[in-house]
Write a protein that binds this DNA or RNA. Sequence first.
DNA 1: CTTGACCCTACAGTCACTTCAGGGTGTGTA
DNA 2: TACACACCCTGAAGTGACTGTAGGGTCAAG
Lengths: 144, 144
Amino acid sequence: MKIGEVAKAAQCSVETIRYYEREGLLPLAARTASNYRAYGTEHLDRLRFIRNCRALDMTHGEIRLLLDTMAEAAPSCGGIDQVIDAHIDHVVLRISELQQLKTQLLALRQRCQRDSTLDQCGILQGLAEMDEDARSVVRHTHLG
Amino acid sequence: MKIGEVAKAAQCSVETIRYYEREGLLPLAARTASNYRAYGTEHLDRLRFIRNCRALDMTHGEIRLLLDTMAEAAPSCGGIDQVIDAHIDHVVLRISELQQLKTQLLALRQRCQRDSTLDQCGILQGLAEMDEDARSVVRHTHLG
DNA sequence: CTTGACCCTACAGTCACTTCAGGGTGTGTA
DNA sequence: TACACACCCTGAAGTGACTGTAGGGTCAAG
């Protein structure tokens, strides 16, 4: 397969595949006489695996951990579990962060009576005055 | 005030302040004879405003919109509302994306009986086989 | 006169890509 | 045969919001 076919099959861009190769997530592909990358199904399988992990918002580091564990001589399932469990923790934490954010934003939004002038705007006052408690809701995971 | 004092007062790093200046979020500061930046309270107020917006995960673009609206000749509250409303939409959307992710990850995690060998690992099978429906949960906001 | 805390600039690195510039290859049609 | 057009290649720069580093200058205390 050429890179474009693989990209279509894995639903990602050609550039992403070349990027994964540079990053070492995908092995170097064989080349045709005209220097085009030539892929087999094992490449496609690995790429699909990676894209599925990315769809679950895993980082390249997490994915590398999974791929490395799979490549071990006598691997067991424990390492895989740990990666997934840690990732679930990230997701759960980020959800609670965003829920706090939402609460704060809705409170801020409430402070506005549309059509008041700017110097009476409760939103701007709120944004100028937020205290430490409110500010302390910040990202602690790799998830946005 | 020198940059370090302002940083402490606004709870951010000195580097962040210099970065905001480069980005145009903060105006250029006056300089002392020894080329140190010299700040007044109006800089600190503006920086606090920016940091509070960032604590709510607004982008620099959103913050710029707010700052620009505030600087208008005869501004009203409507523009401010719109920025906040749009941002609330981003947060709500991202929460639902992450909740779908969490559901998928928990389902994946269920598939593992610890201590099975790798080729029986349900997690890895799941990651290899995920279908389009599952994959379609992807980021549509600037929030991670 | 030296130590240490602070300040300065300019640049590279982070993450997971995307975009761009400037080329080569391969197939179908006029 | 000439050309268009879709595809491929490399290398480098851009994204966002910073963080970190290298290599220097300033200033007050001991």
